[in-house]
Design a protein around this nucleic acid. Sequence first.
DNA 1: TCATAATATTAGCAATAACTAATAATAGAA
DNA 2: TTCTATTATTAGTTATTGCTAATATTATGA
Lengths: 114, 114
Amino acid sequence: MSHLSQSIPKDKVRAASEGLRAIAHELRLSVLCHLLAEPMCVAELMEATGSSQSNLSQHLSKMRLMGILQNEKRGQQVYYHIANPAFAELVEALKKIYCPEMCFVDTEKKTREG
Amino acid sequence: MSHLSQSIPKDKVRAASEGLRAIAHELRLSVLCHLLAEPMCVAELMEATGSSQSNLSQHLSKMRLMGILQNEKRGQQVYYHIANPAFAELVEALKKIYCPEMCFVDTEKKTREG
DNA sequence: TCATAATATTAGCAATAACTAATAATAGAA
DNA sequence: TTCTATTATTAGTTATTGCTAATATTATGA
C-alpha cells in the first residue's frame, strides 16, 4: 500500500523522538489524556492521576517548557491546557489504537451506550 | 471540537506508554521509519542508521520481543519487518506531524517534485 | 502584617536505559 | 572441517530519568 513512503530525515527523527519521549511517560500521558477533555488545575490533576504534588509539578513544568502545555493563573490555582494541537492529535491517535471503543463516543451516535 | 473525549483507563495508559517508549528512542524510531518502506536486514539497517552492530541488534531484539517487529532468516542475513500495523500507523501519524511535506508523496501526484 | 493554601524549585538518591567491548552462535564457502 | 561473514548475547560502565523530601514562591484571607 504505502511502501513508497520515505524515511524521515535525521533531524526530524530526532524531533519526533523528543516529542514522543515527552508524552511516553505514563504520568505525562495520563495528564495529557485528562487535559484532552478540559483545562485542569494542579490540584485536580493530582486527584485525577494520584501523583504527588512535587512530581506532578515537575512533569507539568517539563511539558510546558517543551511547548506541549500552557498554563494560566486563576487566583492561587494554575490551570493547564494543551497548547500544541499536534500533541492532542497524537494522543487521539493513540486512543484509536489502545482504546478504539472509546473513540466514537463524541463523533458518532452516542445514544448507543446511553 | 472533541472536548467530550474521555480519559484512557489506567491500564490502557500504561500499555500506550510502553508502546510509545518503545518507539520513542531515536535509533528505534529511525529503524521503524526505514522498515516502513520495506523489510531490511541488519547490515542494511546498520548502514542506514549509522549505528553499531551490537547496539542495533539489541534494539531490534527489544522491538521483536515487544511484538513490534518480526524477523525472517534468509541465508546468513536476518530480515526485519514491522509486525504490528498499529505501530506502522503511529509512525505514519508522526510523519504527518513532523514531516507533513513528505506525506503526500505516495498518495497524491508525485510528479510535483520529480 | 501574619498565616495558610496552592504551586514551583532544588538537591540528592534510586531506578532505567543505553552504549561499548568482548564473546558466542549460526550459516555458508572453500 | 576450517574459515569467514552475519547476527546475537552478555557483562560492565556511563548516562539519563524519575522520585522524594525539603524549601521557596506566590496569592489570598484574617
